[in-house]
Design a protein around this nucleic acid. Sequence first.
DNA 1: TATTGTTATACTCTATAACTATA
DNA 2: TATAGTTATAGAGTATAACAATA
Lengths: 153, 153
Amino acid sequence: MPTPSKSSTAFVEDVDTRFLETLLGYNARRAALAVIEVFLVEMAPFDLRPVDFSVASLVLHNPGITSRQICAALGILPPNLVALLNGLEKRGLVVRRPHPNDGRATGLHPTPECVEMLRAAEKKASELELKACSKLSESERKTLLRLLQKVYR
Amino acid sequence: MPTPSKSSTAFVEDVDTRFLETLLGYNARRAALAVIEVFLVEMAPFDLRPVDFSVASLVLHNPGITSRQICAALGILPPNLVALLNGLEKRGLVVRRPHPNDGRATGLHPTPECVEMLRAAEKKASELELKACSKLSESERKTLLRLLQKVYR
DNA sequence: TATTGTTATACTCTATAACTATA
DNA sequence: TATAGTTATAGAGTATAACAATA
């Protein structure tokens, strides 16, 4: 049995994480790590990282969306989006066209390949979602999403 | 009014994020970003990043804990913990002592300075927690933590 | 043989400053 | 003067391989 404290001979059998578990940041990070782990494995066939998938999905559902709008929606910085979009464009998933109302901006549009691929990828993501939330009831899953949205909105 | 789809003249007024909002990963990331933003500002006086705080808190509550145990509890890799612990040791918050039962391992112990500083830092973190969850009732906050834990445990 | 802590190193992610074209 | 997209670059975070000491 470990000495309770201050002794140089103390050691730990079961790590006490009770304090950290009272913090939203700690729990959100652990949960996100668990979900991303599943995502990386299951989405490997599409060769889409979480952020690639998010961007492609936004373009699919928002034809003509601009870089700035994507950055705002995903919490990423404009310089870091450039290479990502170049990649999606090179793969023939996204095309850049001039913005109709603003000469500074560029509209991002999904190609037919994007529509087809993302239909399958989103389906897979939704299945994977249920897998990641397998310990939750459907009602609990909906509650969890709602409460998380209340935090960041 | 933007053309619904496929037109090169389409543009977006309000970004449709409804699909992504059905995914736990997206919502957990957004919530974590919101919480960390508050954390970085409020914890600046302690000069502790979230991960430094988590490690120091674990050492405080688990005198004699090993590197491996910290890595397992926080989901970080052993090589990346070394420099972090060196920093905490240099600041006089943590000391390394031989493990009583295992010659390979090192026990990590909090100094009196750690006890004092972390008492204040944990108090601040708990206050900050309520701030980050200001849009949630106390009951909702508890539910949120419980459901997140169900996901990763 | 396996595990702990460590070093070295590579890779990815994130952040800042500055430029251009346009508003 | 401000904003969108971009470039270059720096910094932080995360990953793998390999080693010495110990189990």
